[in-house]
Design a protein around this nucleic acid. Structure first.
Length: 305
DNA sequence: CTGGGGTCCT
DNA sequence: AGGACCC
């Protein structure tokens, strides 16, 4: 079998996925619920999250609560509490930021972490860094997470769900093909039912079948997002890493008309009013957007000709 | 095989 | 605007 990428770690991208996140948050808040069949979704009568114990009994997401109770007598059904989940999420991302400055908050319970070059700092392998992250989250938040590490985002996604719950999976560049042969094409991030059935018409059933196709085929039948997925499966980074860094400073420029000729013009109300209004609306926006995460202050109001 | 909310692409 | 896909 041909090797898709020669180098083990040209870069290291981790994908973290919390295990049964909503239920884990409830169990962390109410330890008596740990190890039990627990689900969330009482208020709508539909199961939206469930513990692994409940999964083992055959309960599924989207089921009616009444059916879940029949299949799994004694299951504890809770109202969902999204404020709590948001708090756990923020605390989880804060832990991740201690390990790497480059984090992509992908969803409430998922994140990408760029670990490239951090082995020397922690004096251990990428896999062992993932273990440290997993342990820290467990100790501080008492929730369980699974982590995958590989050389692209798509491969890291595959790695994080390779072993769940509480798994750690590393896919170095020179071992990609060994993992992709076990991955169904419809299980690849970004390949939906539509594209999966198209690819199956060409006898592409696994992620490896897809990765081994030549690029001309892919460009002929598929659009941009799928070309990116194809490249990422082969170990070539193609999907942008989106860091959501809150800006250190924000500036707002406003031009005056007519242009001022001398300093005294600047104090004329009809010219400064629009500027004051735009500052006011920008400030309101910042207060809403940044809330309690930042202190807001004005550093300078500068004038240019 | 449930569904509301979101993003990215054509 | 509509399609595909994600959580």
């Amino acid at each position: 079998m041909q090797v898709l990428s020669v180098h083990s770690w040209p870069q290291a991208i981790a994908h973290l996925d919390a295990d049964a996140f909503f239920v884990s948050c409830e169990q962390a808040s109410m330890p008596a619920l740990k190890g039990k069949c627990v689900a969330v979704g009482k208020e709508r009568g539909i199961i939206i999250a469930l513990s692994y114990e409940a999964k083992a009994k055959g309960v599924k997401r989207g089921m009616f609560v009444s059916d879940a109770k029949r299949i799994c007598p004694g299951i504890i059904i809770l109202d969902s509490n999204h404020e709590t989940y948001g708090l756990f999420s923020v605390r989880m991302f804060e832990i991740l930021k201690r390990f790497s400055p480059k984090i992509e908050e992908y969803s409430v319970d998922e994140a990408f972490i760029d670990l490239t070059g951090l082995r020397r700092l922690y004096s251990c392998s990428y896999e062992e860094i993932a273990v440290k992250i997993q342990n820290t989250i467990e100790q501080e938040l008492s929730i369980s997470v699974s982590i995958g590490i590989s050389i692209t985002k798509v491969l890291a996604k595959i790695a994080s769900k390779y072993k769940k719950p509480h798994g750690i999976t590393a896919i170095p560049g020179n071992k990609i093909h060994l993992y992709l042969s076990n991955i169904l094409i419809e299980d690849v991030w970004g390949i939906g039912p539509n594209t999966a059935s198209l690819l199956k018409k060409f006898d592409i059933k696994t992620a490896l079948d897809f990765a081994l196709k030549n690029e001309n085929f892919v460009k002929k039948y598929l659009s941009k997002p799928y070309i990116q997925i194809y490249k990422e499966l082969k170990g070539e980074p193609s999907i942008e890493f989106i860091e959501k860094i809150s800006p250190k400073s924000i500036s707002k420029a406003k031009s005056f008309y007519p242009p001022s000729q001398k300093p005294e013009d600047l104090i004329l109300p009809h010219q400064t009013m629009p500027f004051a209004l735009s500052i006011y609306s920008l400030t309101l926006f910042l207060i809403m957007a940044l809330k309690d995460r930042c202190f807001l202050f004005f550093k300078a109001i500068s004038l240019a000709s």
